[in-house]
Nucleic acid binder design. Structure first.
Length: 585
RNA sequence: GCGAGCGUAGCACAAUGGAUAGUGUAGUGGCCUCCGAAGCCAUUGAUCUGGGUUCGAUUCCCAGCGCUCGCACCA
């Protein structure tokens, strides 16, 4: 019989069908299948408890009816038991475990089976989104790392994903910056580090404007000229942006990020008139204190807190461009879903934005995509304060990544001194960046995250290195036995798992599908991290308990199959998180 | 003031309304003539307070307390 990728979902369907044939009110019955505690089984159906209680029935009796109505294939694949007040427990039989492992024997097969949930859908993911003319700092890391993982998860579930870097390239800061750029550019400093020089120039312009009203006026004029399309200022502005984006690229390269588009705020400049017109025409927008704003009377706060979409001076702001951006993504990209990844402080803005977009699109009969604002907490130091350098400055992302790599290099040199230096450097690059990425991903994104080098790179517990170490050990076994993962002869000779450690590992492997679904549906990559960590733990326990390189060919084949499949799932899962893997470390 | 997020062992975290609340670290005690000990095994220790809904609440609702953040033209 065919083995489905997501066994829990398949059970859910079978239970619904059984409810009908058992004469239950099938429409009202929700099987509620979920991963069970391994002590109870692999999956459990909790749905009969609520169903029976609501109808004053005996839950155990209902469960028995339901189990009796299940097709024979379920009894062939699972040991089924009714337990406690009416839980139905399903424990996979060893032969079923083997069948699943055999059916999912390559990255292509995993991908093909996973890529049904969002087949044919288009999702736009807006992440990273730094301001130009500034360096990326630690605050930009979470958006980039979480956003990239979400892109990969959505792609794996079958969606076409459009990665859009919505850079802040059109702020009022450009007046002062252009003023200073024209007068105080240090060519040598610019050549050494353009972003550092832009930041210095902005500070020079800012200080000069503070000190001298004439300078302030000149800077204002520079901005007016820029916004009016003055060719010279436009050229300077374009140069600043081009240089900034080029300077970001090495960081994106290290994080494995490639954007499809970099449509910053300036891209929407010529579309704001349409936004004003349409929101005024639909009656959503109104004049208030000289500004054009949207109130939401049904909302406890936004009935009085305005969504300002045109300032009193007539200028647009980020509400305007975000409205235009939503429209562009719906009209031009035909997005079925939009995901914007920013920190939680922008929650109010996006709540107002999405309320407005929903009403606006409804009024114009535009097709409304799913709108998601993926938020994440602050990165703090051990005292819970925003993470800063010792002198109070922000921590630059490129320095942070360099330090991660340096720490990883020191560690690998200590643990694996026998490896050639070039390889230790290469390992440090993977472990260093991966540790930073993983530390960001492994924690539920809603909460603040305490940044601590020691926890991140110490390589114990739920860290990238622990997972990469498990992967490296599997590769090491294959090297030692002069074998290749997934070899046909070995796979064919593999028999069902037998020992407790083999069974625990196999049972964890088949739950990859559920972890993927959970992480993707909730847009929370930490569910996948948690799964991979547990998988690595089950593998390590298996590794310690059951030797692979034994003489008995049947036992060896059985265990090599488990090694090959663990490797496949680990490498696939880590790849979805945006991490690279190693064969030695 | 109004609103949002968060509150789980000493510390850092997990738990899609389910069974005895899981893990790491720190502590304690074991395991390398044996595939990589960056590992494995065992063990001590926790749901902010008070109500409510539910067969069942860390989870949902209400009220408090604490921390963080947001609230008229920055993004």
């Amino acid at each position: 019989m065919p083995v489905t990728f997501n066994l829990g979902e398949a059970l859910d369907s079978l239970l619904k069908a059984a409810a009908t044939s058992a004469g239950l009110e099938a429409a009202a019955f929700v099987p509620d299948v979920r991963i069970a505690d391994p002590r109870h089984g692999d999956f459990q159906a909790n749905g009969v408890l609520g169903y029976a209680k609501a109808r004053r029935l005996n839950p155990r009796a209902v469960a028995e009816q339901l189990v009796a109505a299940l097709p024979a294939e379920v009894a062939a694949d699972y040991t089924v038991a009714i337990a406690g007040p009416g839980f139905i427990n399903f424990t996979l039989k060893p032969a079923t475990l083997l069948a699943w492992l055999r059916a999912h024997d390559s990255a292509a097969h995993l991908r093909a089976n996973a890529a049904t949930a969002r087949h044919g859908q288009t999702w736009v993911v807006d992440y990273s989104s730094p301001n130009t003319a500034k360096q990326m700092h630690v605050g930009h890391l979470r958006s980039a790392v979480i956003g990239e993982a979400i892109c990969r998860l959505l792609e794996f579930s079958g969606a076409k994903v459009i990665r859009d870097n919505h850079v802040g390239d059109w702020g009022t800061q450009f007046g002062k910056l252009i003023w200073a750029y024209r007068r105080h550019l240090d060519a040598a400093a610019f050549a050494a580090d353009p972003l550092e020089e832009f930041e210095r120039l902005y500070q020079v312009g800012n200080a000069a404007a503070d000190a001298d009203p004439a300078v302030l006026e000149q800077a204002r004029q520079e901005l007016v000229k820029l916004q009016a399309g003055d060719p010279e200022n436009l050229a300077v502005w374009k140069h600043i942006n081009a240089v900034s984006l080029a300077a970001f690229q090495p960081i994106y390269d290290r994080l494995g990020i490639r954007f499809d588009h970099t449509l910053g705020e300036s891209f929407y400049n010529d579309q704001v008139e349409r936004i004003y017109r349409e929101l005024a025409a639909t009656g959503l927008a109104q004049e208030s204190q000289g500004a054009l704003v949207v109130f939401h009377p049904e909302h406890p706060r936004f009935k009085t807190q305005p969504f300002i979409m045109r300032k009193a001076d007539g200028a647009s702001n980020y509400a305007t461009t975000d409205l235009a951006t939503a429209l562009y993504r719906a009209e031009y990209f035909h997005a079925d879903g939009i995901v914007v990844v920013t920190d939680f402080r922008q929650a109010d803005h996006f709540e107002q934005l999405y309320l407005t977009v929903r009403k606006w699109f409804a009024a114009r009969s535009y097709r409304l995509p799913e709108l998601h604002h993926v938020t994440f907490g602050a990165v703090t130091d051990a005292d819970g304060k925003a993470l800063r350098t010792r002198d109070g400055g922000t921590i630059k992302l490129k320095e942070l990544l360099a330090e991660a790599e340096a720490r990883a290099y020191a560690l690998v040199s200590e643990r694996s001194a026998e490896l050639p230096e070039a390889e230790r450097r290469a390992i440090a690059a993977v472990v260093g960046v991966g540790s930073v990425q993983y530390a960001d991903l492994a924690q539920n994104r809603s909460s603040d995250y305490v940044f601590a080098w020691d926890k991140m790179i110490s390589l114990e517990g739920n860290t990238a290195a622990y997972l990469l170490y498990a992967v490296a050990r599997i590769h090491s076994i294959f090297r030692k036995l002069d074998a290749v993962p997934g070899e046909a002869a070995t796979e064919a000779a593999g028999t069902p798992p037998e020992t407790p450690a083999e069974l625990a590992l196999a049972r964890k492997l088949v739950k990859f599908a559920d972890a993927l679904r959970l992480a993707t549906d909730t847009l929370r990559p930490h569910f996948l991290c948690l799964y991979l960590y547990e998988l690595a733990g089950d593998y390590s326990a298996f590794y310690a308990a059951d030797k692979v390189a034994v003489d008995d060919p049947a036992v060896r084949a059985r265990r090599l199959l488990l090694c090959a499949r663990t490797l496949l799932v680990m490498e696939t899962g880590l790849g979805l998180l945006g991490l690279r893997t190693l064969t030695r470390m």
